[in-house]
Write a protein that binds this DNA or RNA. Sequence first.
DNA 1: CTAAAAAAATGATGTATGTCATCTTTCCAT
DNA 2: ATGGAAAGATGACATACATCATTTTTTTAG
Lengths: 250, 250
Amino acid sequence: MSSFHKMSINCNFISETLDCMLEKSHKHVSCASCSARKDSLFGNYCDHELDELDESKSCNYYKKNQPLFIEGSFPRGVFCLNGGKVKVFTRGDEGKEQIIHIAKEGEIIGFRAMFSGEPYKVSASTLEECNICYIGKEDFLNMIESNAVLRNGIMKELSKELGERAVFITNMAQKSVRERLAFALLILHDVYKPEQINLTREDLANFVGTATETLIRLLKDFKEEGVIEIHTRKLEIVDANKLERIAGAR
Amino acid sequence: MSSFHKMSINCNFISETLDCMLEKSHKHVSCASCSARKDSLFGNYCDHELDELDESKSCNYYKKNQPLFIEGSFPRGVFCLNGGKVKVFTRGDEGKEQIIHIAKEGEIIGFRAMFSGEPYKVSASTLEECNICYIGKEDFLNMIESNAVLRNGIMKELSKELGERAVFITNMAQKSVRERLAFALLILHDVYKPEQINLTREDLANFVGTATETLIRLLKDFKEEGVIEIHTRKLEIVDANKLERIAGAR
DNA sequence: CTAAAAAAATGATGTATGTCATCTTTCCAT
DNA sequence: ATGGAAAGATGACATACATCATTTTTTTAG
């Protein structure tokens, strides 16, 4: 319901939204009117660039837990997240997911494998109902080639993520599960705001890198310490400062 | 001594090498004659591009354990590794190093922060005697802007590393120390060949993400199982297949 | 609205790995 | 060559966390 509300903001008319969501139509959501765009790499596109972008993209509705792409397959285009949250993850040897990133509105997903020439090293699937646009490989690469601003934005994004992952690796190697959970909650707080964090315990455990049971116990600790409130599936951050202290420096 | 030999290959004359190494001169090693170049992003440069590259770079000799750059500072240029090995690492809250990557001849180091506009998220320092060229920020960015092949090479490299780090994170989160050590040894085997792995136990532990004592015990196990030989500081991989089996899939 | 399935919660138990303390070997500068 | 420092090795011990088994709660589908 709150995600429904959010979604409606991103479309021109309620009727279009309903088509989009309830009837899974592939109705075009124009980039010019996409509210997620301003925070995206296309944020500073001018009118004719937007028209061109509109031409080359398709728009799709995804139900909860639908895959966008799967580890090992080859990319045919990139995904531009108009509404909803998407998890990006790999599977370890025993099939257990390790969530690398949770993407929100405005993010472009899956462009890494486009440049590396390798198959996807990660999978991506929706965590909730999503509206996602799709740009074919050729169109996207042409845009990159001809538009220096977009290209620099992409390079900046790749570089930023690379830095973040170095920190992620260090946290995994050196922090306790308790510290990592605090760290993860802070990240998710940022991703989900102004809404509350809304993930299954299993997904959260797979993001933190721990067993579901351990995660549940630690959440309970945090609740008893007054740093979070648990509203069934939704987690509310009550004391972010304390979380930061628990998570340690950085 | 064997690293001395290797170094000499990369310079035009022995006398130049000696200057370079023993007297720490900044004598120019020409890119045209750099044997590390063929495997690098500059591998397919033509003559006049090489001249240009030569103009804009400086060449320096580094002793063992010297820093190239430090986490938190801002980049002023990139480093191009002509000879020797370099570790790239972050420090956790208690100052413990987590090694993210070990770079070898031909690699360009430190270009991530150049694009992200952020300070370095990692530090880099030499693991042995090194010959390292340096290209200033402005020159490098100009090259990127004007040379599409180099640019695409950089984007490919960024993308590949991003994928590798997703795997690294998953390994950290889900594999046992024993499995991670096997995995690390295979990576290092590749980096160091045709030489033997040559790292302190502490550095190796900081790469695997474990305590030095634990690492030492596991090395002993591997030795007793006949997968490695330990020649004091140097590690010889005897049975790579078995290591792969221990490391698990991927 | 209800039944079945999925998710969440809780307890009991084992173990891989970190920590601390001590000793030995190797390295390196003088 | 030699002595001090760094690196390597080994043992004893503690514990954070995973695993397994079971129960309760929530969600979903018919």
